[in-house]
Design a protein around this nucleic acid. Structure first.
Lengths: 259, 259
DNA sequence: ACCTGAACACCGTTCAAGT
DNA sequence: ACCTGAACACCGTTCAAGT
């Protein structure tokens, strides 16, 4: 099979641009006088721009090259593969997150810092819907992701959660935000593509779903929940849910803290 | 722009196979005597088999058709698009989840039911790593996803969480499991592809990371956490984290419950 | 009712060749 | 050092034609 075929020729599977990638400095020679003015930074930011505008599905090396007025193959001078480029884009936008310094102000409440950081991470995932699948696919060890990890670790230490519970706490909080931001970002994207507001899309989906008898129980349950929550619009309901979920997580942390 | 180009020709954006899709009954006529023995069920299960074996990236209509000894175009008799097929595959594996009936035994502890259901969902995402991106992309309103939603809603009602907090509770729990299962499934897949055990891969990554000075602080923090947790292996640590995160969520629910 | 072949407009990547 | 053209081995999907 495949395993037998590359028995001897197997190269040691790629892990990350940050570990096995091409040197980052290509195209940044003394004068910066490349024929085309290309370098890794310019390529990365064009990638982010294109991903924001057209999404991950439509992004291609050829499309990006056209945007930069160059052939697709020139990109391979700066980057080993499309995957490496996406990993660079992922780290680039991770840098947009404003990180608190949890140890700077010893009087600051960790609850407020946690609320801010989760909101920021959520907004990041929503602003760049293409980010979420990439976060799922790479090791996230670029400088900006590392900075975020460190910040999260220091923040969680300030909660008073005992050491053996800290990793679980980080998982509960940040995997939740990841899941929430993923779904939210994707829904917004679908609405935009359909040329509908979120409320229009929601109404449309509810109408379509209402036509199918099997789905009636979900409708009822959904209606009950809509009524139980405060807001009128999809945005209101979602904000309500996010806030209340984070509040629940904070309550959980407090309950498991030894004081 | 694009909006102007299809001003009049714009068709009402597709929402789901379950709403706008082709009739499911194609190829299931009286005798079941198609030339090729194809029908939607056979196509869907072949899709799942192929996705499990080779992953989402390698899956293609042409590859699937070859597997079924047919040309790629015959598939379009049964299904409108690749996306529809993936939505069918997503619902098919959602059916693997064993759902408790939360209202059957009034003495059963909701905590145990929640622990079982989250473990089951986590295992599902890990067993089928291709599932997670699909869950992020579709509306998940196939029969099996709907059954899961209903089950979750009934379960959360039994916790005693007040109605206006229930949606937040569901989000906190199930988006967490989604995020956790996504990362875990992907890591296992990478290890398998590299031909390494999880522990070997972990050691290899740590070694590579250790070579880079900027990453030293993460290493230290990671080491501390590893030491604080009980297990020796990657699997042990992950199980520990998952259990402790779910425990934290349960504590949060209890803390926000009016008794 | 079901299946096919040819075609269209794409992909990522390699490789030898140019400047 | 940097960029290109041609080529390879793919994609999803449409459409007219076959049985």
């Amino acid at each position: 099979m495949a395993a037998a075929a590359d028995r001897d020729t197997k190269r040691p599977a790629r892990m990350s641009v940050w570990l096995d990638g091409k040197a980052a400095s290509r195209g940044r020679r003394a004068g910066g006088d490349q024929p085309s003015g290309l370098d890794r930074e310019r390529i990365t930011s064009a990638t982010v721009r294109l991903l924001d505008a057209e999404g991950l599905a439509k992004f291609s090396m050829r499309r990006l090259a056209a945007e930069l007025d160059v052939t697709a193959m020139s990109l391979y001078w700066y980057v080993d593969s499309k995957d490496d480029l996406l990993e660079l884009a992922s780290d680039a936008v991770a840098g947009e997150l404003v990180l608190p310094d949890p140890d700077a102000d010893p009087d600051a409440d960790w609850r407020d810092q946690l609320r801010d950081l989760t909101q920021g991470y959520r907004a990041l995932l929503v602003r760049h819907p293409w980010l979420s699948p990439l976060v799922g696919h790479f090791l996230n060890i670029g400088p900006n992701w590392v900075a975020l990890s460190l910040c999260v670790q220091r923040l969680i230490r300030r909660t008073g959660l005992p050491p053996e519970r800290q990793a679980g706490g980080i998982a509960a909080v940040f995997q939740f935000v990841y899941g929430f931001g993923t779904i939210e970002g994707h829904f917004r994207k679908r609405c935009a593509e359909a040329g509908l507001t979120q409320d229009e899309y929601f109404a449309h989906a509810m109408g379509a779903v209402g036509g199918r008898a099997e789905l009636a129980p979900v409708m009822d349950a959904a209606r009950e929940m809509v009524e139980a929550r405060s807001g009128e619009t999809v945005d209101d309901m979602r904000d309500h849910d996010f806030t209340s979920a984070v509040d629940l997580l904070i309550a959980g942390i407090e309950a498991r803290t030894v004081r």
